[in-house]
Design a protein around this nucleic acid. Structure first.
Lengths: 231, 231
DNA sequence: TAAGAAATATGTTAAAAAACATAATTAAAT
DNA sequence: ATTTAATTATGTTTTTTAACATATTTCTTA
């Protein structure tokens, strides 16, 4: 972790979450933000550790995950301008998941007390944070059912589609812009790495995807959706 | 569903969530609350249906669940003075789960717009609702890992312990106060009904619990905790 | 650039859980 | 009170997934 010096881009231009801040709050917050850099695979925070900051990813990619019984469970992946750690700050308690940099990443971070102060003094901001949390809660509950009830093929298909929607594809219109190791794909999909590798290569044999090392191209999105839907 | 007439008990005496309301808001809200009765197994709301109300359970028990691929998934069980449906109201969208009365139940319910108005006009109330949601989100994420990574015995042990902590035990200090059909126990624990029955009877053979029809007594909580912890 | 480590691939075996089957018991309805 | 339906119980089979094993390839890094 390295603290960087430099100009802070006005955060309300990066994520509409901050648009409800007053002029006074904007000035204050901009003065409080730290620019922090993490290197590939560096830990950002730990499950169980008392929350100290919330953050907004500026560049790079971050994974949020929990350590299960011998296996990691990726809860969500972040792309630039996504925020993280805000739930623990609001709960005024420990983080309930780990965060680590997927690749070299830069974040803006804000101390818990500053963030909580905004939520307490600005009702519109509070309401916005709450709506974001309501969204995350719905996603989490849907996810639980998907991960527990779908079979391996359905879970993997779903993860691939999530990657498409989260990070998009390259100019060819089908190659995932996110180059994810099989292990992370497995941790997203609640399966062992072996099974992620095996199932992905089955998908390739069936012509649903094309594999070129870590580069995965989605050849038949419709069919993957069907596999995901039917479990 | 039956609308009942009668006095509304001041809700801030039932659940501290409402304590932040001003005198004016208290009077207004009390005038808006409806008393509604549901009979055993009656549906209260459906997944996907546009949210119209949030509610607070006054008497009885309610299950919140999602329909998975051919199997229900119980997300949480409510006891009196728990609230439900508030997430969908805040998100200003559809419910993302089903709610049904586990037994004859009475609820106080409040229209979405009224609830949202409180959250928008009263920052302290908004903050309280948000903290509750932060709690629910943490629980949901922990639950996902537990349900996906623990084995059957671990999942069932965990459900039994949850029932102890949620609804408590009878005067003998060990018999669950909640008489849950095996099917619901299975739906809480992400397993088939057969496996819930089989595993529970294994626990009984091992002296961890005693079964008397639907009455389950917890004989060795320590050991159940161990089984739950180790998966 | 070579050696070592990590990641990917694929086959085989073992364990876990679902599906299926059928009986016994209990609860509900007439 | 008696029939019917639902729930509980338990055994057997099949499917699914993890665990294990071992090449092969691709990245690191010295």
């Amino acid at each position: 972790m390295t603290n960087l010096a430099g100009e802070i881009t006005p955060i309300w231009e990066l994520n509409p979450l901050w648009e409800t801040l007053t002029e006074e709050e904007r000035t204050r917050v901009l003065g409080k933000i730290e620019i922090v850099q993490y290197t590939k695979n560096e830990m950002i925070h730990f499950d169980g550790e008392e929350s100290s900051h919330m953050g907004m990813l500026i560049s790079g990619k971050i994974r949020i995950y929990k350590e299960g019984i011998g296996q990691k469970q990726i809860i969500r992946l972040l792309k630039p301008y996504d925020v993280y750690g805000y739930r623990a700050c609001i709960a005024n308690g420990p983080y309930n998941s780990n965060a680590s940099a997927f690749e070299d990443s830069v974040v803006y971070r804000l101390q818990r007390d500053e963030f909580v102060r905004l939520a307490k003094e600005n009702g519109a901001f509070c309401y916005g944070v709450m709506r974001m949390m309501a969204q995350d809660l719905a996603i989490s509950e849907i996810r639980t059912v998907n991960l527990t009830q779908k079979h391996i093929r359905g879970r993997l298909a779903e993860s691939l589609l999530q990657l498409v929607h989260k990070y998009g594809v390259e100019e060819d219109g089908q190659t995932l812009a996110m180059l994810l190791p099989r292990e992370d794909l497995a941790n997203m999909s609640n399966m062992t790495t072996s099974n992620a590798i095996r199932t992905l290569s089955q998908f390739a044999q069936e012509g649903l995807v094309a594999i070129n090392g870590r580069r995965i191209s989605i050849l038949n999105e419709k069919e993957l959706e069907k596999i995901s839907r039917l479990g």
